[in-house]
Nucleic acid binder design. Structure first.
Length: 295
DNA sequence: GGTAGACCTGGACGC
DNA sequence: GCGTCCAGGTCTACC
């Protein structure tokens, strides 16, 4: 067996903290981030074995060091390497976005700060479930629901009963929707259950969406066909797929666009779309990293 | 295609 | 401490 540590290269510019703190995912289990140590941790299921992974930034070149808390076989190391590369978008090319951002004072900060990558979970299934759990609730509610899923239904770490991986589709498909409802998911419980069962039954290929070369509109249609995914959630998931053609319009977007361009007057979807339309296929990213005048 | 009401939970608020 | 109201996206029924 090989040791549990290895490194992965990243395309420049890269800063681990910029990716880790790109949105709230880092606050959701099984992620954790230590700002003092600049270390991102994630409880992963690698080839069926639960491993806590610690990711730190390399000091001598762009990239990260990945350390598992157990010895990794060559195949496990390869699988984990692919997973971490995907989660951090290490090979993502944002050169065109930076070119555009250079000419916009509200986006110029993304270049120096190496912003642009958005943290992803270990699987697109996990990202989809988490996104559904962000809808129609507070952030505290999202954290509580995700924690309930992970703690109750995720595979347990062999050395620590308090640590669990995010549950697989098979694990969630086996759970009675009523139990998910009681766990605090409320009306979202049947959505999660139906999605998990559909994947297990082979009716939905969520991970295949990541590799798809289909157009963004087609991918969006597939996402909108999932119960619980509406316009906002689809836009968030498309962003995680590096497709930035849509702005995720939620209450926060309404507030910020209203303050930025409409003197606090209420705005509709049309005004929000109009505000970022000029950024074309980068408009979602422009919105995400916009330096708003008022927080 | 557009709109209204329901869904569920937790936090804020008034009494 | 209790009850009420509200915010947060999406779904469904209806027009």
């Amino acid at each position: 067996m090989a040791t549990g540590s290895f490194s992965l290269p990243a395309r420049e510019p890269f800063e681990l903290a910029s990716v880790a703190l790109s949105h709230g995912w880092v606050q959701l289990k099984p992620f954790d981030y230590d700002p003092e140590a600049h270390a991102l941790t994630y409880v992963a299921s690698v080839n069926g074995a639960v491993t806590q992974v610690t990711i730190t930034e390399l000091v001598d070149r762009p990239g990260v060091s990945v350390t598992g808390d157990r010895r990794l076989s060559p195949s496990a190391r390869s699988a984990l390497g692919s997973q971490v590369t995907w989660m951090l978008g290490l090979d993502q090319d944002l050169a065109h976005f930076y070119e555009l951002a250079r000419g916009e004072p509200k986006l110029a900060h993304v270049i120096d700060g190496a912003h642009g990558r958005i943290l992803r979970s270990g699987s697109f299934f996990e990202d989809t479930v988490k996104t559904i759990l962000t809808t129609n609730t507070s952030w505290a509610g999202t954290k509580r629901m995700v924690a309930a899923l992970v703690d109750r239904h995720g595979s347990q770490h062999p050395a620590d009963a308090d640590r669990h991986a995010f549950p697989t589709p098979a694990q969630l498909a086996a759970v009675d929707p009523a139990e998910l409802r009681e766990a605090g998911l409320g009306y979202r419980a049947p959505y999660i259950s139906e999605l998990a069962r559909s994947i297990v039954a082979g009716e939905t290929d969520l991970e295949g969406v990541c590799e798809s070369t289909a157009g963004t509109d087609e991918i969006r249609k597939r996402l909108l066909a999932i119960k619980g995914i509406g316009g906002y959630a689809a836009a968030v998931l498309l962003m995680l797929l590096e497709r930035y053609d849509f702005v995720p319009i939620d209450s926060w977007a309404r507030t910020m666009v209203s303050r930025e361009w409409h003197d606090g007057e209420p705005v509709g979807d049309a005004e929000i779309k109009a505000a970022f339309e000029r950024w074309g296929t980068w408009q979602g990213l422009a919105y995400w990293f916009w330096a708003w005048s008022q927080a």
